[in-house]
Amino acid sequence: MFGLEFLQQEVQAMVSAGKLPFALYYEFVINAILCALIIGPVLGALGTMVVAKRMAFFSQAVGNAALTGVAIGVLIGESYTSPYVSMFSFCILFALLLNFTRNHTKMSSDTLIGVFLSISLAMGASLLLFISARVNTHILESILFGSILTVNQTDIAVLFVVSVLVVGTGYWLFNRMLLSSLNPALAHVRGVRVQLMEYIFVLMITLVTVACVKIIGAVLVEALLLIPAAAARNLNRSLGGFMLWSVIFSVSSCLMGIIIPMQFDIPIPSGGAIILSAACFFLITSLMRGFMPQFKEARI
């Protein structure tokens, strides 16, 4: 990762020259901020689609499945800190199975996701307790609630590749994916392969969720997909504004969640701090929507 090392050296040089705050002298802080700048826009943008397609709890189910993935990884001898092969493999299988079941049973999404969410949580909890003797409890904690300050170059590389893939696919297929959820029959007439779009979308959510587990935590990653988009929806009446503000809220939440606990020495996990920052945006925008006349028009 020559580019990353070069960036770190440049930032450190600027800190030494007094152009940047001293906190940025540390490699882990630079890594953390870099992660925030990558996942912020991706989760913010993808979140608008998750909200529009009413798939919020799907990523929660995948996040829980990641717990099982981690446990399997530890059992088969993968690294405790980055068991990506087992996490990606298990979560992708899990997501495809969920979507396949949904398509073939025609059961409502929320019921089916609820069932799969419970199963994945039960499996993850059982397996993690089973392996808990083998690993440090703090590692389990960081998987559950995130630990952005421990991300290494592999994590950043995985995150970067997944982000490029997801953003590229999302840009290319945005209209088709959204239309498929608004009216599948109309989408089909317009030449959209509706079922393929569903599979691609669940894969996108799965990849992003798994790549973000270490940073935000398996339990909380769904919240960062949902809350910035929900906050943006409070203020906007068009897709352009919805997307832009969702990205702004998401990036700001990530940066605030990293910088504020460091600056004020608050001992809370990065995932929790990021989600609490996002929750502040949601609270403020909800109040604005409720009480400010210019935003009331968006309310039904």
Partner: peptide, 29 residues
């Protein structure tokens, strides 16, 4: 079609909808 199945608070304008249906470029642009 008979209807659209969507969350009524979704910020999609008439113009956004037409863009989404008719063009390849993402409707939010």
């Amino acid at each position: 079609p008979q209807f659209l199945d969507f969350d009524k608070t979704l910020p999609v304008t008439v113009k956004n909808f037409m863009s989404m249906v008719c063009q390849q470029t993402p409707a939010f642009f």
